[in-house]
């Protein structure tokens, strides 16, 4: 990992640590932070992420929630992002098992609402959501537990 990537990854934590009020993006409607048994980790490229199970074996919902920081509140964006690790897995089952100590490297979110990975999909209406501040949320299969990833900046579309 290069220094720029490390700096970008560390910035939200540094800002939180330096702020007396903590990270000001938590709001009342947000579910309480869950235990750290499942860790969602951002990778170097915006939208790339990794999921690690540090607790017991778990069934995760294959659908991944994308949340946008909109005027200080986390708003859910509707996308078709999943935990699929390649394009051959489609269609993915509703739940994905993750064993203790195992990691998932899902396909990177490309910032689109539809066809949101390199696999593409049948999409007619489709919006690129950047630029903005986002985070990815993974859920247990029953939806009762949420594992919130760190904030990242999705840049304006380069294409």
């Amino acid at each position: 990992m290069n220094l720029r990537a490390v700096a970008a990854w560390s910035l939200p934590f540094l800002l939180c640590a330096l702020s007396a009020a903590g990270c000001g993006l938590q709001h009342a409607a947000e579910p309480p932070p869950d235990d750290a048994s499942v860790v969602v980790r951002n990778l170097a490229l915006a939208g790339a992420f990794e999921v690690e199970d540090r607790g017991p074996d778990i069934q995760l919902a294959s659908a991944v929630t994308v949340e946008r920081d909109w005027k200080g509140e986390w708003r859910r964006e509707v996308t078709d992002l999943t935990l699929a690790e390649n394009c051959v897995q489609r269609p993915l089952a509703a739940c994905v098992g993750l064993a203790h100590g195992a990691k998932l490297r899902p396909l990177r979110w490309n910032g689109l609402t539809c066809g949101s990975t390199e696999c593409r999909a049948p999409c007619r209406a489709n919006i690129y959501l950047g630029p903005g501040r986002f985070r990815l949320v993974v859920s247990s299969c029953d939806g009762k537990r949420k594992f919130v990833g760190p904030v990242f900046e999705l840049p304006a579309e380069s294409k």
């Binding site: 066809g115 049948p122 007619r124 209406a125 489709n126 919006i127 690129y128």
Partner: peptide, 8 residues
């Protein structure tokens, strides 16, 4: 307005 229709 933005749109990027696609398929596979």
């Amino acid at each position: 307005h933005y749109d990027l229709p696609q398929d596979a």
